[in-house]
Simulated assay, not measured.
Amino acid sequence: MPTTTRIENAFLTVEVSSLGAEMQSITSGDGGSWLWNGDAAFWTGRSPVLFPIVGKAPDDRLLIDGRPYPMAQHGFARRREFTIETTSAMACRYALEASDETRAVYPFDFRLTVEHRLDNRTLTVASMVENRGNEPMPFGFGYHPAFSWPLPGAAGKPHMVTLANGGEPLRQPLENGLLSTSRTPSPFEHGRLVLAHDLFANDALVFPQGAGDSLVYAAEDGPSLAFRFENLPNLALWTKPDAPFLCIEPWHGTAAEYGASPELKDRPYTSVLDGGETKRFAFSVTFAA
Rank of each mutant, 00 (worst) to 15 (best):
S127G: 04
E101V: 12
G210E: 01
P138I: 04
P158C: 11
R117Y: 02
K279R: 15
G153P: 04
W149E: 05
A218R: 02
F147C: 07
A211E: 02
G31P: 05
P150C: 09
Y143R: 07
H252V: 00
T278C: 12
A226H: 15
V272I: 15
R46I: 02
R117N: 08
L151D: 06
Y94S: 06
S148A: 14
A98F: 09
T27Q: 13
F11G: 06
E15P: 00
Y69E: 12
E230C: 03
L12G: 01
P244V: 05
D100V: 13
G20H: 04
Q73I: 12
T286R: 11
H190K: 13
I7M: 07
E130V: 12
E168N: 15
M71T: 07
P152W: 07
G156Y: 09
E257M: 11
D60E: 13
Q172N: 10
F147R: 03
G222I: 02
F42R: 01
P2F: 08
P268D: 11
D274V: 06
G275P: 04
C92N: 10
F281S: 00
Y258K: 12
N120H: 14
G191S: 06
T181R: 13
T86R: 13
A72K: 15
D30Q: 12
L225I: 14
S148E: 07
K279W: 04
R228A: 14
P70Q: 10
F200N: 10
H190W: 01
H190Y: 03
M160Q: 14
L178Q: 06
F283C: 02
S88Y: 07
R61C: 08
P208H: 03
H252I: 01
G38D: 06
E22C: 10
V105C: 11
T270H: 03
G212S: 10
R228I: 07
K279Q: 14
S224G: 09
L193N: 00
A91V: 00
E257G: 04
V105H: 03
G191A: 07
A219W: 00
P250R: 02
F245N: 00
T270I: 10
P2D: 08
